[in-house]
Amino acid sequence: MTTNINPVDNGRAYGNRNIVMQHVDVTKEARSQQKAQKPCVIWLTGLSGAGKSTIANLVEKKLFAMGQHTYLLDGDNVRHGLNKDLGFKDEDRVENIRRVSEVAKLMVDAGLIVISAFISPFRTERDMAREMVEEGEFVEVFVNTSLEVAEGRDVKGLYRKARRGELKNFTGIDSPYEEPTDAECILNTNERSAEDCANQLIQYLVKHHYL
């Protein structure tokens, strides 16, 4: 008798039974002590055009100048490599964030301060990213800008394309953005410059002993 087996499900089950975590002697705590910093994920979320990438870049430059060990994960850059096979449907967006969250988790384990700049429009996916690291290792930063202001900037021309129907599933136009309800830090780029917002975020990290 021939039995039909789903190769994907069977492979997952086989892997789950035979793959175990390998012990390593150099721990996250040792790596963070070596770097004299508290590893964490700084997760910047907000509309396209809110200023996430600009602020993230400024923050990393400031931290680097302070001697901190960092890495910046940017939404556009990641889609050129790791996530170039993903589109922009809701399920693709969730998978995009899942993969990035796994990478960020590995970098936190390496003792790094990880700066992530992603629209990440859904609360559930941001919660997923938070849950992948330990308590106190995730700083959600809401880059708060009104749709009107973000669309007025439109530095990449994406809003114009979305309004013309040339770009589907665009956050703020035909796909929703769910604002954070309990972000650790809120940066208002309607009223403050990117430089001021970067300094505000640095001050938060100092005050809460990440640096």
Score class of each variant (00 low, 15 high):
101 S>Y: 01
34 Q>C: 03
64 F>D: 07
15 G>R: 13
9 D>P: 02
18 N>T: 15
75 G>I: 02
102 E>Q: 13
187 L>D: 08
84 K>W: 10
84 K>E: 04
129 A>Y: 04
161 K>Q: 14
45 T>C: 08
138 F>I: 10
103 V>C: 10
21 M>G: 04
63 L>W: 09
195 E>I: 12
202 I>Y: 06
43 W>C: 07
100 V>M: 07
38 K>S: 08
116 S>Q: 01
22 Q>G: 12
107 M>Q: 06
25 D>P: 05
109 D>R: 00
167 L>V: 11
30 A>T: 12
155 V>R: 06
108 V>G: 00
204 Y>Q: 15
35 K>C: 04
183 A>E: 05
44 L>E: 01
120 S>L: 02
81 G>Y: 11
90 D>G: 05
102 E>P: 02
40 C>I: 04
199 N>T: 15
89 K>D: 11
10 N>S: 14
134 E>M: 09
144 N>I: 03
150 A>W: 00
192 R>N: 09
203 Q>G: 08
120 S>C: 06
194 A>T: 09
29 E>V: 09
136 G>E: 06
12 R>G: 11
100 V>G: 07
142 F>W: 14
112 L>A: 12
78 V>H: 06
75 G>L: 03
131 E>Q: 14
166 E>D: 13
67 G>W: 14
11 G>K: 12
156 K>H: 01
38 K>V: 09
119 I>W: 02
166 E>R: 06
30 A>L: 10
201 L>P: 03
69 H>K: 10
30 A>Y: 00
195 E>M: 11
90 D>A: 12
138 F>T: 01
187 L>E: 08
77 N>W: 01
129 A>I: 10
46 G>M: 04
42 I>S: 00
15 G>T: 12
37 Q>L: 11
157 G>T: 12
98 R>A: 11
93 R>N: 09
38 K>R: 15
75 G>S: 07
54 T>M: 08
58 L>S: 04
47 L>Q: 01
43 W>Y: 12
